[in-house]
Computed example of a mutant assay.
Amino acid sequence: MLNEFKTFIARGNVLDLAVGVIIGAAFGTITKSLTDDVIMPVIGAIFGGFDFTSYFVRLGPIPATYTGSPENYAALKEAGVPLFGYGAFLTVVINFVILAFIVFLLVRSVNRMLAKMEKEKAEGTAPPAAEAADIVLLREIRDELKARPGTNPPL
């Protein structure tokens, strides 16, 4: 069983998948930063300075020991207050849409590049065009003259 596992892990597909997952996770953090630090502030500025993460509905009471703002989503969540954080969810959805669009653009570019390479490969391996009939006839005459004894045609 251990040898089978080693064979499974050593396959190229598994290693490719592992690399893809690692790069995908890193790319996810880049996308999250792009959304949180670049896109959402711009959207907030366009629509009057609001922050999507501040949109939530409190589903339970605030503990008596809580001293923070009742409008601070992160602090309320940390204090254990049950919250319906639709603003945070909206941010995650925007993250997903951006990530999906970027992956779409990458896959589209790769598919176009592969199609172009296949087309160039197909054009490069095409059989040569047929020679003109007069060229073929002249070659036959030359070969016939070479075959005759005592004649030495100039080339």
Rank of each mutant, 00 (worst) to 15 (best):
D37T: 00
E144Y: 09
M117R: 13
A79D: 02
T35I: 15
V97T: 09
D16T: 07
V103M: 13
Y55C: 04
F104I: 00
M40S: 04
R11N: 12
T65F: 13
L83Q: 07
V14Y: 14
N13H: 10
F56V: 02
K146H: 05
L155W: 08
D51S: 12
I102F: 11
P61T: 05
I43D: 02
N152T: 13
G48F: 04
G49R: 03
S109F: 15
P153R: 05
E118D: 14
P127D: 03
I30R: 04
A133V: 10
F89E: 08
A100M: 10
D51A: 12
K6W: 15
I98P: 02
P70L: 04
V107W: 06
F47D: 01
N72Q: 06
G124N: 14
A133H: 09
L99N: 10
L137P: 00
I23E: 00
G28Y: 12
F56A: 01
A88I: 11
L99T: 12
I9G: 02
V110Y: 15
P153Y: 10
L145F: 14
V81M: 08
E123V: 01
V93Y: 12
G85E: 15
G44I: 05
L83F: 14
N13S: 15
A126N: 01
T35K: 01
A25D: 03
A147K: 08
D16R: 10
S69Q: 07
D36W: 04
V57G: 03
I141Y: 12
K77Q: 14
Y66W: 09
F84E: 09
K116P: 00
T35C: 13
F47T: 08
E123R: 04
D36H: 08
I135V: 15
G85M: 13
D37I: 00
F50M: 04
A26N: 06
A79S: 04
V103T: 10
L83K: 09
R108P: 00
G124H: 07
R112S: 14
A115Q: 11
A64Q: 11
G28C: 10
K146Y: 10
D51G: 01
L76W: 02
V21H: 00
K6G: 01
T151D: 02
A132W: 05
I30V: 15
V97Y: 09
A26K: 03
G20S: 07
T7C: 01
V136A: 11
A45P: 01
P154M: 11
L106E: 04
I46T: 14
E120H: 05
R112F: 12
V38E: 01
I62L: 04
T53I: 08
P63S: 06
A132Q: 12
M117H: 06
D36M: 08
I135M: 12
A133E: 15
A25N: 04
V107F: 10
I23R: 00
L99G: 10
E140R: 11
T65K: 04
T29W: 14
A26V: 03
E131Y: 07
I46Q: 11
G150V: 03
F52R: 00
V136M: 05
V19G: 06
N152S: 13
V107I: 12
E144R: 06
D143L: 08
I94G: 02
D134E: 15
I102A: 10
A126M: 10
R58N: 03
V93N: 05
P153D: 05
E123I: 01
L83E: 08
V21N: 00
E131I: 06
